[in-house]
């Protein structure tokens, strides 16, 4: 009976076993690496998902659960009261419907305008093209904060070239609190992160082969017809990418909504920001322990629609980013 040590020594010294040895070593290395990878991914996923799960469970806590030190994550007497109150406080269904209409129309305009501009930059030669494209980069690089004050002032006294005050004969109209400023900015391709979308579309169209356009041209299609019937159907990856980005960022936007004083009826994110005050003001829920439970319910209600959209479009979205040519 030789000892284990000797057997290993023998195994190592045996040249005929060389391949076998290497195979084992490689398998071991691979195993350790994949363990390491698993730990890393699970750990980071925990950091990302942990709070969301915590919030989700906490939103079902009843008042007693909130004060009981023995309760961890799973409530003893779960209640839907947080949600039922939040549904009325935020007028959830109404605001959600308004908002879906508002943000999807904005996203649609973003896609139409930015794809046209991107196509224009990708396929045509015209004077000052380089400088104009530098302007796109400038729009991406300059944060909206740097131009927001003049925009605010402009839309508060909306009077382009003095035409409106001539017609109405009085003070120029105040466009704040309406959705008009956002639509204006988006139509003119300088809305929320429009520069980025123009860039994405430009990169994608530049990567498409010229031959398909030439074929359409030879067959007698006009430029616009070619764009609409040949280029756009081919541009699904960037369209999905821009659609998701645009929906999500618009949905989460508080900055523009605050500056243009867009009413909470159109911006769930804005309602969420003032939820604590609303609760203590109108509903006399002053206890921070309890009111935070209501806020959690509100957060879950706000992120749920987005998560659902994301789950449906997720696979196509990540493929879309990969193929939309952000990478060039």
């Amino acid at each position: 009976m030789e000892s284990l040590k000797q057997r290993i020594k023998k195994f190592n010294a045996d040249t005929r076993m060389g391949n076998e040895r290497q195979r084992i070593i490689r398998w071991l290395m691979g195993f350790v690496l994949s363990l390491f990878r698993l730990a890393l991914i699970v750990g980071i996923s925990y950091v990302i998902l942990g709070p969301i799960i915590g919030i989700a469970f906490n939103s079902f806590f009843s008042n007693e659960d909130a004060y009981s030190p023995a309760i961890y994550l799973i409530p003893q007497s779960p209640t839907l009261e947080r949600y039922s109150l939040m549904l009325t406080v935020t007028q959830y269904w109404k605001v959600l419907r308004n908002m879906l209409f508002y943000i999807s129309s904005l996203s649609l305009i973003q896609i139409v305008v930015c794809s046209m501009v991107g196509y224009g930059f990708a396929r045509f030669q015209f004077p000052l093209k380089k400088i104009l494209f530098a302007c796109v980069i400038l729009v991406i690089v300059l944060p909206a904060h740097s131009v927001i004050l003049p925009l605010y002032v402009t839309f508060r006294n909306f009077d382009p070239l003095g035409i409106l005050s001539l017609i109405t004969g009085g003070n120029p109209p105040n466009m704040l609190t309406t959705l008009f400023p956002m639509y204006m900015l988006t139509i003119f391709g300088v809305g929320l992160r429009s520069g980025l979308y123009i860039y994405i579309f430009n990169q994608f169209f530049r990567g498409l082969p010229k031959e398909i356009e030439e074929a359409a041209f030879v067959d007698g299609a006009g430029t616009f017809y070619t764009y609409l019937r040949v280029m756009v159907p081919n541009a699904m990856p960037p369209i999905i990418t821009v659609l998701i980005f645009s929906l999500v960022w618009q949905y989460n936007d508080v900055f523009y909504a605050n500056v243009f004083q867009i009413s909470g009826d159109w911006a769930l994110s804005k309602k969420l920001n003032t939820l604590g005050n609303t609760l203590s003001g109108s509903y006399r829920i002053i206890d921070p322990n309890i009111s935070s439970l209501y806020v959690y319910a509100g957060i879950i209600m706000m992120i749920l629609p987005m998560i659902i959209i994301y789950i449906f479009l997720q696979r196509r979205f990540i493929e879309g980013v990969e193929r939309s040519g952000i990478v060039g």
């Binding site: 305008v113 046209m116 501009v117 196509y119 224009g120 930059f121 396929r123 045509f124 030669q125 015209f126 004077p127 093209k129 104009l132 302007c135 796109v136 900015l185 139509i187 003119f188 391709g189 300088v190 429009s194 123009i198 430029t223 764009y227």
Partner: peptide
């Protein structure tokens, strides 16, 4: 072509 191209990017330029 140059004019068409400018037409395509005109919303952005105006904005």
């Amino acid at each position: 072509r140059a004019v068409t191209g400018l037409l395509f990017i005109s919303p952005f330029v105006l904005g």
